[in-house]
């Protein structure tokens, strides 16, 4: 048992080591563009995060795509999850398979096949094609998360609401939706992080537009500006802060 604790500690360290390196490198003044070594401490990268051309624009674009894709995928996925868990209808089995398959399909295949569709339809590649692509692979994940939440819900709660004079619409609004909310929020967060972090599918369907992961990929060939690590560190800090705040607020209630 003690052995498993040691292993657990080492595994956690392994998971967090690169994050520490990212934070460290954000304060690095590299000696040349292709160097990955820590050369000299500096605050210059933090003072000028938007220095490298296109970096901040790509972050902003990724955020916009992420938000749009999240909203759409969450709405579509939540409706699907309700349909699949609450109703029996013909074609439920095949639909379940259709929802599962995108998760089992490699991203290269998802990205390339969609590109072929856009090319065949002469759809100009760019912002919207990437949004469409992201919604497509995020929907399944939202469905899975929301479905799990709905499956764990006591059906008597909705019966109780109906019994207490709530019409079907009121039952949905005052009982079902609030109870499903944690699942919907979790699904939305997952969708956003999948979209914001996606490189492969975006790379196929973005045309000349650049998202943040695409910017990182591109600069990895030419030498990474240290500001990329600033963005990475800032993202990490914001996420940690959000988690801490929500945890404390929940505890305060």
């Amino acid at each position: 048992m003690r052995g498993s604790r040691v292993v657990a500690g080492l595994v956690l360290a392994y998971l967090l080591l690169p994050v520490a390196v990212v934070v460290g490198l954000s304060f690095n003044a590299p000696s040349n563009r292709l160097s990955y070594d820590f050369d000299r401490f500096t605050l210059a990268n933090w003072a000028d995060p938007c220095g490298p051309a296109g970096l901040c624009a790509s972050v902003l674009r990724s955020a916009q795509i992420g938000l749009l894709a999240t909203v759409l995928a969450t709405v579509l996925g939540t409706l699907l999850a309700f349909g699949l868990t609450r109703h029996r209808f013909r074609g439920r089995g095949p639909l379940n398979a259709l929802v599962f398959l995108p998760m089992a399909t490699p991203e290269v295949v998802l990205g390339s096949s969609l590109l072929a569709l856009f090319t065949a339809g002469a759809v100009p590649l760019g912002f919207w094609t990437v949004v469409i692509a992201h919604v497509m692979f995020c929907v399944s994940f939202v469905v899975v998360v929301v479905k799990a939440r709905l499956a764990g819900m006591d059906p008597r709660l909705e019966e109780a609401a109906a019994d207490l004079y709530a019409s079907p619409w009121h039952t949905f609004r005052t009982v079902t939706l609030p109870l499903a909310m944690p699942g919907i929020v979790a699904g939305a967060l997952l969708a956003f992080s999948l979209s914001f972090d996606d490189f492969i599918v975006s790379n196929f369907n973005a045309g000349t537009m650049t998202t943040f992961p695409m910017f990182v990929w591109g600069s990895a060939q030419r030498g990474i500006p240290p500001q990329v690590n600033v963005v990475g560190t800032a993202m990490f800090a914001v996420a940690v802060l959000a988690v801490v705040i929500t945890t404390f607020r929940r505890r305060a209630r």
Binding site: L12, L15, L16, L17, P18, V19, V21, V22, L25, Y36, D37, S193, F196, D197, F199, F212, P213, V216, W217, A220, I224, V228, N229, V231, G232, T233, M235, F236, A239, V240
Partner: peptide, 25 residues
């Protein structure tokens, strides 16, 4: 802590491994 790595970009972290595993690292 397990999900913390997700809080920052996957490509940026993979590049950090490149720094950790570098020949001169």
């Amino acid at each position: 802590l397990v999900v913390a790595p997700f809080f920052t970009s996957f490509l940026v972290r993979t590049l950090a491994w490149k720094a950790i595993l570098a020949d001169t690292g």
